[in-house]
C-alpha cells in the first residue's frame, strides 16, 4: 500500500456521508492489505448475493413498460463527399497498381463479346466501369485526380455508368453490325428504385417508406397530448409479456413485430411533486422500462387501440428530439441509434 492510495481512501472517508456504503467498501477492499484478505474471502462470498429486500417499503415507484418499436434502415446511407472522393481516389490508385485485366480468360478472340469489350475499352480506357475515363498505365497515369465539378466520385453517376455498361453494346448508334456476327444477348434488368420516395417528398411521417436510410421510431400521442413511446402500467406479467401486449394494444394485429431480447434497453423516471397513495404503498413517481422491438411488416392502426392514444408518427432520432420533452429526451437519447 503506497501513500497515494492511502490518501484516496482517507479522502473518501473524509467525504463522509455522501458516499454510499458499497462504494466505500469497494475503496477499502481494493487497497486492503494482504493480511486482511483471508478474513475478507468470506465477506466476498456473501456479497455475491445482493440485498434483495428493501428496508423501507413505503417509498415506491410505479412501474411501466414501454416499447421502442423501430424500423431499421432499408438502404445504405449517402456518402459524405469526402468519403466518395476518397473511394474514387483509392480505386484509381488500384487501377495503377493492380495487374492488368486477363482479357482472354473472359473474352474469346474474335467473338462479339470481345469486339464489344474493345469498343468499350477504347471509350473508357480502363477495365473498371465506374471510375470514369482514366488510364492506369502509361505516360499519363499520374493524371488521376478529378477536376472541379466532375461527377465521377458521385454514387449516382457510378450507378448510372454500370447500368449503361449493362444495357449498351458500346457501338455508335448508326453503325451497322458486321455481317454474320451473332448478337450478344443482354440480360434484362430492372433499374433500381429511387432512394428518395414519395413519402420523403411529402414528408409523410405516418409512412414507413420515409427516410429509408435512417432508423424510424414509433412515437405516439397519449391521452394528455404528450408525444412519447407507447407505454402502459405493468400488470401481473413480466416486462416482455407487457411489451407484447402494448404492441398489440397500440397498433392492432396488423403488424409483424419482433421483440429484441427480454431485457430493457433504457428507463425513464418521473417524480411526482406529491406522493400518490395506492392500495398499500405511496408512489413517489413512476419508472418506465423500455424494451426494444422491430417492425418487419404492417403498419400501426390506432383505431381500436386500448391505451387512449390519439396519434402516431414514425420519426428518426433527430426529428424525435423536437417532439418529446426535454427530460424525456435526456433519458431516451442514448438508447436510440444515430442512423
Amino acid at each position: 500500500m503506497n501513500a497515494g492510495q492511502q490518501t484516496t481512501r482517507r479522502l473518501a472517508v473524509r467525504a463522509g456521508q455522501s458516499i454510499c456504503r458499497s462504494c466505500r467498501d469497494t475503496i477499502s477492499r481494493t487497497y486492503a492489505s494482504a493480511a486482511a484478505a483471508a478474513v475478507q474471502t468470506e465477506d466476498s462470498i456473501s456479497q455475491h448475493i445482493p440485498p434483495v429486500t428493501q428496508s423501507s417499503p413505503n417509498t415506491s415507484y410505479g412501474v411501466n413498460a414501454g416499447v421502442v418499436l423501430s424500423r431499421p434502415p432499408q438502404i445504405t446511407r449517402d456518402l459524405h463527399p469526402f468519403e466518395s472522393a476518397f473511394f474514387l481516389y483509392q480505386r484509381r490508385l488500384n487501377e495503377r497498381l493492380a495487374l492488368p485485366f486477363t482479357r482472354y480468360f473472359y473474352f474469346k478472340k474474335r467473338t462479339p463479346a470481345d469486339l464489344e469489350w474493345k469498343r468499350k475499352m477504347k471509350q473508357r480506357l480502363t477495365p473498371a466501369r465506374d471510375i470514369g475515363r482514366y488510364q492506369g498505365y502509361g505516360e499519363e497515369a499520374w493524371n488521376d485526380e478529378v477536376l472541379v465539378g466532375a461527377n465521377e466520385s458521385k454514387f449516382e453517376w457510378q450507378v448510372e455508368k454500370l447500368l449503361e455498361d449493362a444495357e449498351q453494346s458500346g457501338a455508335e448508334p448508326g453503325a451497322a453490325d458486321a455481317p454474320g456476327m451473332k448478337k450478344v444477348e443482354r440480360e434484362l434488368f430492372d433499374r433500381p428504385k429511387p432512394r428518395v420516395t414519395e413519402a420523403d417528398e411529402t414528408n409523410d411521417t405516418k409512412s414507413l417508406n420515409r427516410a429509408l436510410q435512417r432508423t424510424l421510431y414509433l412515437l405516439v400521442k397519449n391521452k394528455e397530448g404528450r408525444w412519447e413511446f407507447p407505454q402502459d402500467k405493468l400488470r401481473e406479467e413480466n416486462l416482455h409479456g407487457a411489451a407484447h401486449r402494448i404492441i398489440t394494444h397500440t397498433g392492432g394485429e396488423n403488424m409483424n413485430t419482433w421483440l429484441v431480447g427480454h431485457v430493457p434497453i433504457g428507463h425513464h423516471q418521473i417524480d411526482y411533486p406529491e406522493p400518490r397513495p395506492t392500495e398499500k404503498l405511496n408512489e413517489h413517481g413512476a419508472k418506465t422500462f423500455f424494451l426494444k422491438a422491430r417492425i418487419m411488416a404492417g403498419q400501426v392502426n390506432l383505431k381500436e387501440n386500448k391505451l387512449g392514444l390519439q396519434d402516431f408518427k414514425w420519426l428518426a432520432k433527430d426529428e424525435l428530439k423536437n417532439e418529446v420533452d426535454g427530460s424525456y429526451w435526456r433519458s431516451i437519447k442514448n438508447m436510440l441509434t444515430e442512423r
Partner: peptide, 21 residues
C-alpha cells in the same frame, strides 16, 4: 495496398442494426 474502395452494405447494417441488437 489501395483500399477501401467502398463502404459495404453489410458493414453498414452491422453498425446500424445488428451490433445494437
Amino acid at each position: 495496398q489501395p483500399g477501401p474502395f467502398s463502404l459495404p452494405r453489410l458493414e453498414q447494417t452491422y453498425q446500424s442494426t445488428i451490433a445494437a441488437d
